[in-house]
């Protein structure tokens, strides 16, 4: 029974991710992420001292994170609230799939598209950096990979929060508005409160702890990279904790959902 449901979960995930990967929106988002990354790396290397490569890397990744985070939260709202609004969720509830398999299958489907959205721009970043500086020291590659990992965890946390918001509010309009306000809070308001935002923020992991927002973690991680030469492991743990809490909370709502 469990084995069968796990197969159903995988099936749901596969269908969800395939549907997104071949969609026009996804291709546009991917193109935008790659394009912005490519442009940013040139701009940063032009205006800044290329010796401060860590700073260049972190600055480049911020627009990518904002674009992809917005896209993923909208798409996640669409696969939960959107399906409730379009009344397709009811049909899914009549399938021989347990609610947990359907719920986590949909989330997994969204998570599966994250590597695609991260790997391509990060690949461009590595390629362009190596073209500009001629040689990339292993420490820089390690930093890029650590940041790529924290970006993926940030996206997972954003997806989890979007899912919770969607299943609680149910209506696409309400969920999308709530997520928009949440992203605004994450990207603009909280970084200003932290002190300038982005990589100029002084590193203090307490901010990530106080503001329970994935972006605060990512922001703290980039500064941690500049100062400590690596990402503070606490930030990985924080992001995973946010994701887990949001996912489990959303599941308890979804489990009792009536359509």
């Amino acid at each position: 029974m469990i084995k069968r449901q796990i197969k159903m979960l995988w099936n749901t995930a596969k269908e969800t991710s395939t549907e997104h990967l071949i969609s026009y929106h996804f291709i546009m988002c991917l193109f935008l992420c790659c394009f912005i990354t490519a442009i940013m790396i040139w701009l940063c290397s032009y205006f800044e001292d290329t010796r401060n490569l860590k700073y260049t890397i972190t600055s480049t990744l911020f627009p990518l994170v904002i674009i992809a985070m917005t896209y993923l939260s909208i798409m996640t709202v669409n696969i939960f609230s959107g399906e409730i609004d379009k009344q397709t969720m009811g049909t899914l509830f009549t399938l021989p799939v347990k609610r947990w398999a359907l719920y986590f299958g949909k989330i997994l489907g969204m998570i599966l598209i994250i590597p695609v959205i991260v790997i391509m721009p990060v690949g461009i970043l590595i390629f362009e950096l190596s073209m500009i500086v001629g040689y990339l020291p292993p420490v820089l590659i390690s930093i890029i990979l650590q940041l790529a990992l924290i970006i993926m965890l940030t996206f997972i946390a954003v997806i989890s929060i979007s899912v919770s918001v969607s299943v609680i509010l149910r209506k696409t309009l309400y969920s999308a508005t709530a997520m928009f306000l949440y992203l605004m809070l994450m990207v603009f308001i909280i970084p200003i409160l932290i002190g300038g935002g982005g990589p100029v923020t002084r590193y203090n992991v307490d901010y990530a702890l106080i503001f329970l927002l994935p972006y605060a973690c990512f922001s703290a991680a980039t500064v941690s990279t500049i100062i400590l030469n690596n990402v503070d492991p606490l930030l990985y743990c924080l992001l995973m904790t946010y994701s887990l809490i949001a996912m489990v909370y959303g599941y308890f709502v979804f489990r009792r959902m009536e359509v």
């Binding site: 029974m1 399906e83 379009k86 009344q87 397709t88 009811g90 049909t91 009549t94 399938l95 021989p96 799939v97 347990k98």
Partner: peptide
Amino acid sequence: DVTYKENIGYLGENIGYY
């Protein structure tokens, strides 16, 4: 249980379509 759903077909009045 959900296994009974393998043996039912449901068509609602206002169901949505992809």
